[in-house]
Nucleic acid binder design. Structure first.
Lengths: 129, 129
DNA sequence: CTTGACGGATTACGGATGTAATCGTATTCC
DNA sequence: GGAATACGATTACATCCGTAATCCGTCAAG
């Protein structure tokens, strides 16, 4: 997967589909239908549409596999997560991380484990920089 | 402003407008147009449309003020921020905060001040709970 | 070979969004 | 009071999104 620099816009429903591909590495439409069975109520046609759109956007690559296509991610998961995070922070918090965490922690109590994990992430980053 | 429990969906462009109202408390369409002058390239009509939609959605209240309307926020800023945060985390990170911060810190270096602030937020939350 | 089933491509369709222009009405300046 | 002006309301329109159904071609079973 080329470290893609231009991350396509991935919609809500599309994120659900992409996560399947990032978990499996590759899959056919039917694989995804099976994977989402019981998790969403989407008809197979709907899932096929989402996959096709993701392919058009360049988020999925596909190769012919007999009569059907085998799809695989064409964009990096972390890259997409980061792009979505940036976009969200820009939209809602003027691009800043601390106000986000402040509001979030004010509204939802963080568990002790969560806090410990978050601290660890910060420490890791302190050392590295 | 009633601590609104049902937060309307606020779009990207609408967030830009709402922030003006949250900063000022109240404003007319023209006030917002003036406030966004140089910040966006939106025509006055565009801004008026956004404000009208926000009013329809219940995000803004208005009262007649002479020939024009005086608008004010009808939803709490923190509530909206929190709702948007929840929605984002659910979409991209399976609803979990730590993977978000992990990916974010991996992709962008946090400044020492930022890290200090984040730590403080965590501490505050530890004691309180 | 013919036919049916399955898979991809095309088409559908309503709501949200970005981005306005025009229409209608009321106020204000002569 | 009539005309210009300034607002809000209505209308516009392309694109994206959620959610499919239908059409079309090919592979497989008989």
């Amino acid at each position: 997967m080329p470290k893609s620099l231009d991350i396509p816009q991935i919609s809500d429903a599309e994120w659900t589909v992409m996560r399947v591909f990032w978990e499996r590495g590759e899959a056919t439409v039917n694989d995804v239908v099976a994977a989402l069975e019981g998790f969403t109520d989407w008809k197979p046609r709907t899932i096929q549409t989402l996959i096709r759109r993701l392919h058009q956007k360049g988020a999925l690559a596909h190769e012919k596999n007999g009569r059907e296509f085998l799809y695989r991610p064409a964009v990096d998961e972390r890259d997409c997560e980061h792009a979505a995070s940036r976009s969200f922070l820009t939209r809602v918090f003027d691009g800043r991380l601390t106000p986000f965490l402040a509001t979030f922690a004010e509204r939802e109590s963080l568990s002790d484990e969560e806090i410990a994990e978050l601290r660890k992430i910060l420490e890791r980053n302190t050392r590295d920089s």
